[in-house]
């Protein structure tokens, strides 16, 4: 089943030149998708479109076959509950004045999810291997890796079908990175992931499918296995060469 479809999507910020050209991609339930490209290639912009935070300049975006319309409140509520996100910077993505419990509970409260909020927060904290005592603390009491876990807990608390993650390990050191990869791997048993990264090695650890983005255009897409073993486009080959060989975690 396809969760989100992008058809011939182009995008420009305001009146400046286009940063995405003619993007076609499909996100299918149960198949993690990696979007890979160098910095400035348009990865974050695609994510903003997938999240309904920006409207395409041209082309269509559909969620479960229905056009994504930010003005349709009821539709958007279902969409927000099903599609969540984790951001790159674990410092800027958590409100310093909110307690962890309130940070994680925000989607449940804002979307009026009918559930026991305390229990849902405790369960989300357990899922990301944080102690239940973390709920009463503030973000500044946590390290970068722990903060990224809090952000992941917020993204999964509404039990979404799809979690979009923008460069979630880029700001972390190597050992923390490996643990977050493990965590994402266990999460991907329950929810589909879209991982955006400049690091093809990281994405390949978790994704079945890959999309390679260069200057706002898709230059190659297909199964991760095929692309990694036989990259067709020279840009993909360069991306692969620039990635240090990673130990095999599988």
């Amino acid at each position: 089943m396809s969760l989100i479809d992008l058809a011939a999507v182009s995008f420009a910020y305001g009146r400046s030149r286009k940063v995405l050209h003619d993007i076609d991609l499909r996100i299918e339930a149960g198949r993690n998708l990696g979007i890979v490209g160098e910095s400035g290639s348009g990865k974050t912009t695609i994510l903003r479109l997938l999240l309904g935070l920006a409207r395409p300049t041209s082309g269509r975006i559909a969620f479960r076959g229905e056009p994504l319309d930010p003005r349709d409140r009821l539709f958007m509520r279902g969409f927000r509950r099903s599609v969540q996100a984790v951001f790159q910077d674990p410092y800027s993505s958590l409100d310093p004045r909110q307690k962890v419990a309130d940070i994680i509970a925000e989607p449940l409260r804002s979307l009026n999810v009918d559930t026991d909020i305390d229990a849902a927060v405790a369960e989300a904290l357990a899922s990301v291997d944080l102690p239940s005592g973390a709920a009463g603390r503030y973000p500044h009491e946590f390290s970068g890796g722990q903060r990224q876990r809090i952000a992941i807990a917020r993204a999964i608390v509404s039990q979404p079908e799809l979690v979009l993650a923008d460069e979630v390990v880029s700001a972390l050191d190597l050992t923390t990175r490996i643990r977050i990869v493990d965590l994402l791997k266990s999460l991907s048993e329950r929810t589909t992931l879209v991982l955006v990264s400049h690091d093809i090695g990281f994405v390949a650890l978790l994704c079945q499918d890959l999309v390679i983005l260069e200057k706002g255009r898709i230059v190659e897409q297909g199964s991760a296995r095929n692309i990694l073993s036989a990259p067709k486009h020279p840009y993909t080959q360069r991306l692969l060469e620039s990635t240090p060989r990673l130990p095999d975690f599988t």
């Binding site: 935070l53 993505s93 409100d95 004045r97 925000e106 989607p107 804002s110 979307l111």
Partner: peptide
């Protein structure tokens, strides 16, 4: 401009909620 505002929008928090929960306390 902070990412937690984007996160709030993704969480379905409306503009008034963003003012009340995030902007004013900060």
């Amino acid at each position: 401009a902070m990412d937690y505002i984007t996160a709030a929008r993704v969480s379905g928090t409306g503009w008034l909620g963003i003012v009340r929960i995030h902007v004013l306390p900060n």
